[in-house]
């Protein structure tokens, strides 16, 4: 009996905490389907009286419609993730499966890169990007992030587990090293690809400081810095519109999270943003 009551108390506490944690997202959702004035109704409407999709329609009718920013974000994330997967798996392979001079030193230098907080790189990276002529260019949103020490570390870790005999057998059959990598190694380390892709996807989609630093032309903005521009714009006081924009920004990640809960939780526990 006692145990049953305790169970119920624990359950109620857990539900209350869940409500507190979810509330800001719930507020975002109902705010996006209300008229701007209704968001500031007093007393507040905790349950919207009617659904209004004007905010979303308005997003299409702005000078720069929302899908421009959505496309910029998607484009950035695609190359961001692709580059990180390709270059980190190749580097991880070299470090895990070959012996060569200077291997230890190179590995240490790469690992040392994990100690660098990104914010400390903003100023010099801005100057380097200017020198390379990629300032205010969408390429700058992903190119500097192809080298992710963390991803190399993870890839190497997975590849150490692959038995050398597997590669030897392929070599005897006359397979080239590139073919061994592509046809034998990459299928085995799919979980590592998934882990790196998820962490990088979220980081790139949500990125704020770097796009803010490098972009000036509004039509090149990604979703997060478009939100910032909306908040700062003295002529936009339409909070319904802002909520709709924020909802569109968060939706792809939220959907991916709900489908891949386990992978997200294990992968993202460590990551950090600004």
């Amino acid at each position: 009996m006692n145990k049953k009551i305790n169970k119920l108390i624990f359950f109620i506490i857990a539900i209350l905490v869940a409500i507190i944690i979810i509330f800001p997202l719930y507020w975002l959702f109902i705010g996006s389907i209300q008229k701007s004035g209704d968001i500031f109704a007093y007393p507040p409407n905790f349950i919207p009286e009617k659904v209004n999709i004007d905010n979303f329609l308005n997003l299409f009718e702005r000078d720069i419609p929302f899908y421009t920013y959505f496309f910029n974000s998607a484009y950035t994330v695609f190359f961001h993730v692709l580059g990180v997967l390709v270059f980190s798996s190749m580097a991880g392979f070299a470090l895990a499966k070959y012996n060569f001079r200077g291997k230890k030193i190179i590995f240490s230098i790469i690992i040392a890169g994990m100690l660098i907080p990104f914010q400390a790189l903003i100023i010099p990276l801005f100057l380097v990007s200017q020198k390379l002529g990629i300032f205010d260019n969408r390429i700058a949103l992903f190119l500097p992030f192809f080298a992710q020490p963390f991803a190399v570390f993870l890839m190497r870790q997975y590849m150490l587990e692959i038995p050398d005999s597997l590669m030897e057998a392929a070599r005897i059959d006359g397979a080239s090293e590139l073919r061994i990598f592509w046809q034998i190694v990459t299928p085995i380390i799919k979980p590592a690809f998934a882990a790196v892709a998820i962490v990088d996807f979220v980081a790139a989609w949500n990125a704020f400081v770097w796009p803010l630093t490098i972009l000036r032309t509004q039509s090149k903005f990604t979703l997060p810095i478009w939100l910032n521009a909306l908040i700062k714009d003295p002529y936009v006081v339409d909070y319904g519109l802002m909520f709709a924009a924020a909802l569109i920004t968060v939706l792809p990640i939220l959907i991916a999270f709900l489908f891949l809960q386990k992978q997200f939780i294990s992968g993202l526990a460590a990551g950090a943003e600004d």
Binding site: P24, L28, P224, L227, N228, A246, T249, D274
Partner: peptide, 9 residues
């Protein structure tokens, strides 16, 4: 998983 910019809004 929520973008900081969204939390800001």
């Amino acid at each position: 998983v929520i973008a900081l910019s969204v939390s800001g809004v």
